[in-house]
Simulated scan of single mutants.
Amino acid sequence: MHIHSLRCFGARPGTGNPALVIEDGDQDPDVRLSLARARDTTCVFLDTSADGALVIDYYYPHKRSPLCIHATLAVAAVLLARDPYTGTIAVRTAVEGQRLELVRTGDDYFVRLSAQPVAAKDVGADTAAALLGVPAGSLATPPRVASIGSPKLLVKVTDTDALYGLAPDLARIAAWSKETGINGIYAWCRRDDGTFEGRNFNHLDPRLEDSATGVAAGALTALLGLGIRLRQGRATGGDCLIRTRMEGGAILVGGAVETF
């Protein structure tokens, strides 16, 4: 078993979401989940299928996931470093079989993918506001559901003060997410400098709030129809910057990756 340790989406060296890329790992899902719990970080397992395709399998410390963008960027950094002249590497996800493309642009890595259909219905402002612990009138626009492979309820608030003044009911959000099939709430706002800032709520423990949520950045890009620069991590003491862009019908989500 070979383990690579990387940080992704860091806004400066030494910051970013950690991920472990594991090659030649045990195939048992329970063993994989146990490793993620023991390491207390996101683990992504790189496998080769019977037909020769590269397959990536994601595990958080608390569950297996259909898609994790920052872990996919870690895979991109490992694979593309072996052949810097390789333009694009195609992979697919283990749970949903979603096809992804890994690319490098300058010093940044990107995952190219497409917006995905969402079965879940949009949620009313009253429901979203109650889950976030704020008055419905404080939401800037009606909440919307969007997905690039892991559906998010996107809730716009007025500014960064409102973003960090939220009082989410994490237990209710977890129960609501299970009932609706939506993977948590992503609250966001537009900053005065034209960038965006966001927070992700899908854990029961507030200490586990994401420092960067690539699937939410991609979902927000799909919703807005434009590439963005999205800041995240202030609530966790992190400093992350996610970059997205659109190329025809494709969405690219990426940022910096470094080994540690």
Rank of each mutant, 00 (worst) to 15 (best):
M1L: 13
I3L: 08
R12P: 03
N17M: 07
D24A: 15
G25K: 10
S34H: 07
V44F: 01
D51Q: 13
A53R: 12
V55W: 02
D57R: 11
Y58R: 00
Y59Q: 09
R64W: 04
S65Y: 08
P66M: 09
L67K: 10
L67G: 11
L79V: 10
L80V: 09
T88A: 06
T93K: 01
Q98D: 14
L100E: 02
L102F: 07
G106K: 13
Y109I: 03
Y109L: 04
F110T: 05
F110W: 11
F110M: 10
V111L: 15
V111C: 08
R112C: 12
S114F: 09
K121H: 06
A125M: 09
A125Q: 14
A128R: 00
A129T: 09
A130M: 10
A130Q: 15
L132W: 06
G133A: 04
P135T: 06
L139W: 02
A140W: 06
R144G: 02
A146Y: 05
S150P: 05
S150K: 11
S150I: 15
V157M: 01
T160I: 14
L163Q: 00
G165A: 01
A167I: 14
D169G: 09
L170V: 11
A175N: 12
N183L: 12
R191D: 00
F196W: 10
F196E: 01
R199F: 04
F201H: 08
R207H: 13
D210N: 11
L223N: 01
L223A: 07
G227A: 12
Q232R: 03
Q232L: 03
G233Y: 02
A235K: 08
E247I: 14
I251C: 06
G254P: 01
T259S: 08
F260E: 14
